[in-house]
């Protein structure tokens, strides 16, 4: 019941902040647009005709067009399956980053606000252990963000399935993979929050984690770059730093690749990258919990 209390309160706090609601509103608009404006006619798994807001869709000169004589040119045999995957990829590339960004902004203040004088005293006086208190706060934020991602993936997946008859389970899985990615980032957010007690700095540090994870992937993937550094010690240290960062930070690029692969049903999930990121997130969360559990407030 005590964990439930923290989960409920975290959900309420996130909804109160409006950031999550903005994202929810954007996704709802997208879903409504697809539900109300898209018309498809699928024959034998191929899109025979399609209109968006009454405008006929066509492909001509290699481009997707609306309202330019679609009846004559048609959709060049575009399969319903491909159409669904393209739409879902588009949604993933635009709405997943938005979801992650909004969720980070919304959740970055959770820990600093909890640690404010007068608030933390009360919480710690209640019969709930510090690790459970902190982990519940983390879990609450993760559940809200995951619910938002699943709202997008399940909603859009269901609408497209109704319109085309094609259900792409990979899209749902991609949403869950992005939730896992958010879980890893959130662990760094709460770690920064408990160490520095600042919402702004937490967001900034999370941005640093995000970009650093993208940057260090390039030298990690390129085996020859260390040869550019002449000094042996400097080379050793630099390679050490790059590899440490690569293996200890969530692997943003690999998560994006995994989401794309799941949506397109191409290749398997890179479990090594996913598990490595999960471990780094778990490490950050563990550090945050240990620090929180031992500190005087």
């Amino acid at each position: 019941m005590r964990v439930l209390a923290i989960l409920i309160d975290t959900g309420r706090e996130l909804l109160y902040r409006k950031t999550i609601l903005v994202y929810f509103g954007v996704v709802t608009l997208v879903l409504l647009a697809f539900a109300l404006l898209l018309r498809t006619d699928v024959v034998d798994g191929v899109i025979a005709s399609m209109s968006v807001a009454g405008l006929e869709a066509s492909t001509s000169r290699g481009a997707f067009r609306l309202g330019e004589g679609g009846a004559e040119t048609g959709l060049a045999g575009l399969s319903a399956q491909d159409f669904v995957r393209y739409v879902q990829l588009g949604a993933a590339f635009t709405l997943y980053p938005l979801a992650i960004l909004m969720s980070i902004f919304a959740t970055a203040s959770l820990v600093p606000r909890m640690l404010e004088k007068g608030a933390i005293d009360l919480l710690l006086s209640k019969p709930i252990g510090r690790p459970a208190l902190f982990a519940s706060r983390y879990l609450g934020a993760l559940l809200v963000a995951t619910a938002n991602l699943l709202y997008l993936t399940c909603g859009l997946g269901a609408i497209l399935a109704l319109k085309t008859g094609v259900w792409n389970g990979g899209f749902i899985w991609s949403g869950l993979v992005m939730s896992l990615y958010f879980a890893c980032l959130l662990a760094f957010v709460v770690l920064a929050g408990v160490l520095l007690r600042s919402t702004t700095v937490s967001v900034m540090l999370t941005a640093v984690v995000f970009f650093t994870s993208l940057i260090v992937r390039l030298p990690h993937a390129n085996q020859d770059w260390p040869l550019l550094i002449s000094g042996r010690i400097a080379r050793f240290v630099t390679v050490g730093i790059v590899e440490t960062l690569f293996h200890t930070l969530p692997r943003t690029y690999d998560f994006v690749q995994a989401a794309v692969a799941l949506i397109r049903h191409e290749g398997g999930l890179q479990w090594g990258a996913v598990l490595g990121s999960a471990l780094s997130g778990a490490g950050a969360l563990g550090l945050a919990i240990i620090y929180f559990s031992r500190r005087d407030y």
Partner: peptide, 16 residues
């Protein structure tokens, strides 16, 4: 702590 009630100085409740 189930048997304890506490009112801290300058207590702050969640504004939401």
């Amino acid at each position: 702590r189930r048997l304890v009630g506490y009112l801290p100085e300058n207590h702050r409740y969640p504004a939401h």
